[in-house]
Design a protein around this nucleic acid. Structure first.
Lengths: 203, 203, 203, 203
DNA sequence: CATGAATGAGCTTTCATTCAT
DNA sequence: CATGAATGAAAGCTCATTCAT
């Protein structure tokens, strides 16, 4: 899934410039969506000319793809961080409040929704998104397996798969939920969310 | 929800034509997204000239809004059907397999995602979506309250709110899930989904 | 310059319908200009369907032409009325106040301006307008000649031509004037206008 | 009057391009009128793409406004030139022949008519036109006042106002006159025009 | 006679992309 | 490396006109 980068005489500087564009794109995509954001808008936010952006990206679609790629990396980072915890499952439960609240911030999840919607239609984006998802759920699955073995709980592939899917479903549902009901009672949801996670992960 | 319709000499025929446009729009929106679909594309799919569509809708945005409105009505219909069941909670649990499978069909949920993404940015769409959500969760909440009272279980507003949100979150998460992992093991997920629902609804 | 009329089984009714359209057109043309007024707008104002208008007029241009023709007739009527006065020249001078004030009413002259502008560009309209102008200035010239002979003033073709042109120029200038300076002091203008007319006509 | 210009890296070149568009617009407006001229037509005449014109003007209306603004400036220039004459009133009378002949050239006054007609309906254009008119008649009034004082003639505000309006009416009437009677005897009109001006200005 | 549904051409405007400088 | 002038295609939308009913 690695984006082919153009050759530049100073690759380091080029990398900075690319990042500049992607950061600008984030602002614009959030404000106007992938298709509503114009190259002119992005170039102004990036502090460089529209023409110049084409020295770093082949097309607007390439920017979207790179942007998505960068965003799915964030999930990967979260998972990696989780893996390094002493007891990852406990960490998940302990972190519920903060984590749910973060998912419920509107600014956090407008873009992931945009990404999912785009992935539902655009095969390139779908590939990026699915690849990242595969890695994440692999990590979660491994964590679950290890933990259950340590806790002397039964480990069964079928049950494990369902568990992984359900946990991710819960988190991904939050992004939709907050759009449909931005004023929901976060505390009430968190309480129930934590209880459900606990039941799922430790039984 | 307040869609003003233009006056037509033959309202029945006009209604058919409007529906024709909305059906065509569905095809195009699914293929290209709200903003990727052009009026020309829609008009071709609807079998009428682009200009003529404007005799039934004020603008492309009005088509999107009407389309969204029609789609949220589907959820309302599901809820209404549920309310008429002898034991709605039991019906939910009993129906898990079919219901989850339906949510996992790709064609079912590409558009809801598009709708949610649009609602995250477009206030008109957000209003439609939130209104529908309010009605749906009101119905679910009432059903839960009634059922718990009947089962002599404790009824607590805070807990009820969290429960409602969590259940809806689960279902809404499925739409995202299937985009990120279209090949997931439906059986495994269903099993876990049903168990979770049972625990949530009956305790 | 006679407009060819379509054959109708009931010519009288047809004439009424045509007039209905022209009256509606006046309203719309005044509001939106010849090119800004749409057939839909006109048809609504005329109380008949857009399609039906085409039974009475070949095209929108034909409506404009007929409308212009009808409007130039108004000037002809004024001249005819003037001719029947005992002393037409004196009548002109006596009528200055009323006449100038009428020309200064904005609603009176928005359309003549539109007509003149159109005539500057559209040969069909130009022909209508020029024909009417020829008739009007012929009448004015004849009146002047007769009156001067009666008053035993010298009659000289060259001087007469200049006089006719200048008098008409004065009146036509008013239509432009009021657009450029709608708040002008009408009384001051009228006083000077009358004095000038008197000097021109009686010396 | 307040035309905001977009920022360009080479303002000189931009100014040239703007003028190119305005010159092209003149051709097209004359041929087809403000509303009959299409952006495609203008862009072809200007030798640049329609899209590019929008780098210099916000909209077609902005082109019309800029065009009008530029045209009213011509009158201002004439007045300024007149003010610098030793005896402006005498200069007006001496210049009658040339001046009237210029007003009678068809190409000179097709567009002013279009402008007046537009001003009768479009508030933006009306404002531009009225502002220019206010300046012009202010200058004429001042010239008249000064000259009369110098000639020891009575100066009376009411009479002055009427005089200013009448003189301008005469000149503005010429633009309409030539459309309605393009073959008029210019010499005859000029003779009478000059005599009338003389009587008005020097008594 | 009368309607208004329907068309298709053409409108203004936007925008991703290219390229001379 | 960097610009932004310039293009051309396509967008949403309007409207004069036609025609089946």
């Amino acid at each position: 899934m690695s984006t082919v980068e153009k050759r530049h005489s100073d690759p380091e500087r080029a990398q900075t410039r690319r990042q500049q564009v992607l950061d600008a794109a984030e602002t614009c995509f959030r404000r106007s969506g992938f298709h509503g954001a114009s190259m002119a808008e992005i170039s102004k936010a990036a502090g460089m000319s529209a023409g110049h952006i084409y020295n770093y990206f082949d097309s607007k679609d390439a920017i979207i793809a790179a942007f998505v790629e960068q965003n799915v990396e964030r999930v990967t980072a979260i998972m990696r961080n989780l893996e390094q915890q002493e007891d990852p499952l406990q960490a998940i439960v302990d972190d519920t409040a903060r984590s749910v609240r973060e998912h419920l911030e509107r600014d956090t999840w407008a873009l992931p929704l945009e990404i999912s919607a785009e992935a539902a239609r655009n095969p390139t984006i779908a590939a990026v998104v699915r690849d990242a998802d595969a890695r994440s759920r692999g990590q979660l699955r491994a964590m679950l397996k290890t933990a259950r073995e340590r806790h002397h709980l039964p480990v069964d592939d079928f049950a494990l798969d369902g568990l992984v899917e359900l946990v991710i479903t819960l988190y991904q549902g939050l992004g939709v939920r907050v759009v449909h009901h931005p004023d929901l009672d976060a505390e009430a949801l968190i309480a129930r969310f934590r209880a459900t996670l606990k039941a799922l992960l430790f039984s």
